[in-house]
């Protein structure tokens, strides 16, 4: 069945995925909102940059993160200057790498659902003397709920399933950076196919439960239009 190393890897994976998803929503929401509303000429460039992690093979992305976040890289020098040390082979390093890797999966659905809201509800809210923040939280967020749901689910699932980036940036340290995908891969490479099957089974079951809960709890009821 499951060894303690397997269990540790499962727990670590869900910890990384949950924190990374929260961070992505935190940064992805203003970014997607800006992308949906702006007329700036930067829009195209930023859009393209956000989508770039989809193009690079994960191990390649991981390699460049390793270079950038290492002691001789720009980010590494910056984090060292802040007194944080360097990020590779640490839990925060895993989260940062996962966020960069999965961000397009959060930003794109949010962007689409923000864009779909259109001008009218926002103008209506403005005529009712609602400030920008109030408008965002009482009008935009409820209307974009399906977008938030899709974004969270895609971001979470994509982080759970990632392999190449975490393998590169994490360094495969038991209980610290060895996530479940790496652990399964290790079992396969060591020809421990039975252990690999068990762990994969549990991963699928657990992921299925989490996604099921997300889909049912956050079920996308047709939102009552806040301005009607």
């Amino acid at each position: 069945m499951l060894t303690s190393a397997d269990l540790g890897a499962l727990l670590l994976t869900f910890k990384v995925a949950s924190i990374a998803t929260l961070v992505m929503l935190l940064f992805g929401t203003p970014l997607a909102w800006w992308l949906a509303r702006t007329r700036s000429s930067w829009k195209g460039i930023i859009n393209a940059v956000v989508a770039l992690p989809l193009v690079l093979p994960p191990t390649v992305l991981g390699f460049y993160l390793l270079v950038l976040m290492g002691p001789t890289g720009a980010i590494g020098k910056f984090t060292a200057w802040l007194g944080l040390g360097t990020l590779p082979f640490t839990f925060p390093g895993l989260v940062v790498a996962s966020v960069l890797y999965s961000l397009p999966f959060v930003v794109q659905p949010l962007h689409a659902s923000f864009a779909a809201i259109g001008e009218q509800p926002l103008e209506a809210a403005a005529t009712l003397r609602s400030g920008p923040l109030d408008t965002f939280f009482s009008v935009v967020v409820p209307l974009a709920k399906p977008g938030f749901l899709t974004a969270s689910i895609l971001g979470f699932a994509h982080t759970v399933g990632e392999f190449g980036v975490v393998l590169m940036v994490g360094g495969n340290i038991p209980d610290k950076t060895r996530v479940v995908s790496v652990q399964i891969y290790n079992h396969v490479e060591a020809l421990e196919y039975t252990e690999a099957h068990w762990l994969s089974g549990w991963l699928l079951l657990f992921s299925f439960s989490v996604l099921l809960v997300l889909y049912t709890v956050l079920k996308t009821h047709p939102v009552a239009h806040p301005l009607k």
Binding site: V67, P71, T72, P88, G171, V182, E189
Partner: peptide, 14 residues
């Protein structure tokens, strides 16, 4: 994961 990756860990000073 393999010896190439191990080399990358060291060659990048991580």
């Amino acid at each position: 994961e393999n010896i190439s990756q191990t080399f990358q860990f060291v060659s990048t000073h991580n």
